[in-house]
């Protein structure tokens, strides 16, 4: 068999096994619930019959192995069980709650990735090209700062910036500044687009309106993930530039731009793709916080609400989706780096 295909298949198998174990862990979450959980959910006035009925409904009265396979089988059919928020005669299926929100989250992640990945690669290549110049230093300083800020700080800073576009001139702070400074600051703030600070969307929102409404969350996430990707791109290219064949190209008299794009970049793809996938996976974590800040109806916000109300089936479904995406992205990164770099086939 082709060695590339074999390694790829091996990775796929490994990914499936990981997903299987992760699903067991997430599943056992429900088994670890404290015994009086049914009572706590149903309230103090619940009779022992209602408690028993509730336990039967969430299936706690059957053996765990059987429950696990039923759970997995149902999930493969798109049935994620019913939320604890459902009442008799009014079943709220987890899949129904999640579906529109999953679309919203994917939308946000896709917009962010479309902006962030080309931006990070471009900045990284430019920084490597003009390394140690003012551009490189500026980009480095800015990315180092955004990398160590919590997401919600970046998010609120942006929201504050957009809001102070309207409130700045009237504020006490502006009054205390010299007139010309306040005026020019106010003029500069006027250049800030009036992005919506609340991303309230629903199924009827038209496409471009949706894009407009996720602008601020997308910018926040972009700022957070670009830093890492850009630094990695820069490091990978600079690392390549130290090799003899680049010296050869340089001696042939090729322009730096051609050297970087045609000679260094193709060999630097493996580390770059890995870090891009890693950061897209990181989006999953960032998305939770940012969705809460901008009240965006995505799956992250749903999960946080479910954790607060201890709605375990919803938490499980969200966690499984997040974990599966995470594993999948890492798997794709592995496969791409094997495919683009045959040297990885022979680990030492």
């Amino acid at each position: 068999m082709n060695p590339v295909a074999r390694t790829v298949l091996e990775r796929l198998g490994l990914g499936l096994i990981t997903l299987f174990i992760v699903s067991i862990i997430i599943f056992s979450a429900i088994a670890m619930l404290p015994g009086d959980f049914a009572k706590a959910t149903l309230g103090q006035s619940a009779t022992s019959e209602t408690v028993a009925a509730f336990q039967r409904e969430i299936g706690i009265d059957r053996p765990p192995v059987e429950r696990y396979f039923v759970w997995v089988a149902q999930m493969l059919h798109g049935d994620f069980g019913s939320s604890f928020a459902s009442r008799t005669g009014y079943r709220r299926s987890v899949a129904e709650i999640i579906a529109p929100r999953l679309y919203n989250t994917m939308f946000l992640a896709a917009v962010t990735a479309l902006v962030a990945v080309p931006l990070a690669l471009g900045l990284g290549i430019l920084a490597a090209l003009y390394r140690n110049g003012w551009f490189d230093r500026l980009v480095n300083a800015v990315t180092l700062t955004t990398i160590s800020f919590p997401e919600f700080f970046v998010a609120y800073m942006l929201a504050y910036l957009v809001i102070s576009r309207d409130t700045f001139i009237g504020s006490d702070f502006a009054q205390s500044l010299p007139h010309w400074l306040a005026a020019s600051l106010g003029w500069a703030l006027n250049a800030v687009p009036k992005f919506p600070t609340l991303s309230n969307v629903n199924e009827q929102t038209p496409f471009w309106d949706h894009v407009w409404k996720v602008a601020l969350p997308a910018i926040t996430l972009t700022l957070v993930i670009v830093a890492h990707m850009m630094r990695m791109t820069r490091a990978a290219i600079i690392n390549m530039l130290a090799s003899p064949y680049i010296d050869m190209a340089r001696l042939k008299g090729m322009s730096p731009m051609v050297i970087v794009l045609r000679h260094a970049l193709p060999n630097a793809w493996a580390p770059i793709v890995t870090v891009v996938a890693f950061n897209l996976a990181y989006l999953i974590v960032g998305v939770v916080v940012v969705e809460v800040v901008f009240v965006y109806p995505g799956i992250g916000q749903l999960m946080v609400d479910a954790v607060k109300s201890r709605d375990v089936p919803v938490v499980q479904a969200c966690a499984l989706i997040f974990a599966a995406t995470y594993i999948l992205l890492n798997l794709i990164a592995d496969i791409i780096s094997i495919a683009t770099n045959p040297r990885l086939l022979h680990p030492r």
């Binding site: 990981t18 992760v22 862990i25 997430i26 979450a29 996976a281 990181y282 999953i284 974590v285 939770v288 999960m303 946080v304 479910a306 954790v307 201890r310 709605d311 375990v312 938490v315 499980q316 969200c318 966690a319 997040f322 974990a323 995470y326 594993i327 890492n330």
Partner: peptide
């Protein structure tokens, strides 16, 4: 292989 914030949320629930 599970993002730690997500895992923490599951355990906290």
């Amino acid at each position: 292989s599970i993002p730690s914030l997500i895992f923490a949320l599951v355990l906290l629930s």
